[in-house]
Amino acid sequence: DAPDEFRDPLMDTLMTDPVRLPSGTIMDRSIILRHLLNSPTDPFNRQTLTESMLEPVPELKEQIQAWMR
């Protein structure tokens, strides 16, 4: 099983494109984008959230890719 820090906190699946929300939570980009289609909010604190506020986490993405090899 993947380490917890590699798993999306909402869907508990392996992240492939991790992004940091303004709240500091790291999620998979595809999952948070799907959530934003229904509700333009951070799913953990209900603060306003837009796609432009998502910050890529390239170092975590590299760690996940290395773990998958």
Rank of each mutant, 00 (worst) to 15 (best):
D1M: 14
D1N: 14
D1G: 13
A2Q: 06
A2W: 14
A2P: 15
A2C: 14
P3M: 05
P3R: 06
P3T: 05
D4V: 15
D4L: 15
D4S: 15
E5V: 11
E5Q: 12
E5K: 13
F6V: 02
F6E: 01
F6M: 07
F6I: 03
R7H: 07
R7D: 03
R7P: 02
R7L: 11
D8Y: 03
D8K: 06
D8E: 03
D8N: 04
D8L: 04
P9L: 05
P9C: 08
P9W: 07
L10P: 04
L10G: 03
L10N: 02
L10S: 05
M11I: 07
M11V: 09
M11A: 13
M11L: 09
D12F: 15
D12N: 15
D12E: 09
D12C: 15
D12L: 15
D12T: 09
T13Y: 07
T13H: 07
T13D: 05
L14A: 03
L14F: 08
L14S: 05
M15R: 00
M15E: 01
M15Q: 00
M15L: 04
M15D: 00
M15Y: 03
T16P: 04
T16A: 10
T16D: 09
T16I: 14
D17T: 03
D17A: 15
D17N: 08
D17F: 07
P18S: 01
P18I: 03
P18A: 01
V19K: 00
V19H: 03
R20C: 07
R20S: 05
R20M: 09
R20F: 05
L21Y: 01
P22H: 05
S23K: 01
G24E: 01
G24T: 01
G24A: 03
G24L: 04
G24K: 04
G24Q: 04
G24H: 03
G24D: 03
G24N: 05
G24Y: 02
T25V: 15
T25S: 09
I26D: 01
I26H: 03
I26Q: 01
I26T: 05
I26L: 04
M27V: 08
M27G: 02
M27P: 01
D28L: 04
D28W: 06
D28A: 01
D28C: 08
R29C: 08
R29Y: 08
R29P: 03
R29G: 04
R29T: 04
R29F: 08
S30D: 13
S30E: 14
S30M: 12
S30C: 13
S30I: 12
S30T: 12
S30Q: 14
S30L: 12
S30H: 14
I31G: 04
I31F: 04
I31A: 09
I31V: 15
I31D: 03
I31E: 06
I32N: 00
I32T: 00
L33H: 07
L33A: 08
L33E: 09
R34S: 12
R34D: 10
R34K: 14
R34T: 12
H35K: 04
H35C: 10
H35S: 05
H35Y: 11
H35T: 03
L36V: 05
L36H: 01
L37S: 13
L37Q: 13
L37V: 11
L37R: 14
S39I: 07
P40L: 11
P40T: 11
T41N: 08
T41R: 08
T41A: 06
D42F: 04
D42Y: 03
P43H: 02
P43W: 04
P43D: 02
P43E: 02
F44D: 02
F44A: 04
F44V: 05
F44E: 02
F44P: 02
N45R: 05
N45W: 05
R46M: 15
R46T: 10
R46F: 15
R46W: 12
R46P: 06
Q47V: 10
Q47A: 12
Q47W: 09
Q47S: 15
T48Q: 12
T48E: 13
T48F: 15
L49I: 08
L49M: 08
L49R: 00
L49E: 00
T50H: 13
T50Y: 13
T50P: 03
T50A: 09
E51A: 14
E51G: 07
E51S: 11
E51I: 13
E51L: 11
E51C: 08
S52D: 15
S52K: 10
M53F: 05
M53R: 04
M53E: 09
M53L: 07
M53A: 07
L54R: 00
L54F: 06
L54N: 00
L54C: 05
L54P: 00
E55H: 08
E55P: 00
E55F: 08
E55D: 09
E55S: 10
P56Y: 08
P56F: 08
P56H: 07
V57E: 08
V57N: 05
V57A: 07
V57C: 13
P58Y: 09
P58E: 10
P58F: 08
E59A: 10
E59L: 12
E59Y: 13
E59T: 10
E59W: 15
E59V: 09
L60P: 00
L60S: 02
L60D: 00
L60T: 01
K61P: 01
K61S: 08
K61F: 09
K61D: 04
E62A: 15
E62G: 09
E62K: 13
E62F: 11
Q63E: 10
Q63P: 00
Q63C: 10
Q63G: 03
Q63F: 08
Q63Y: 08
Q63D: 07
Q63T: 09
I64Q: 00
I64R: 00
I64P: 00
I64L: 06
Q65D: 14
Q65I: 14
Q65N: 12
A66L: 13
A66N: 13
A66H: 10
A66D: 11
W67Y: 10
W67R: 01
W67M: 04
M68W: 11
M68R: 08
M68I: 14
M68S: 09
R69T: 13
R69G: 11
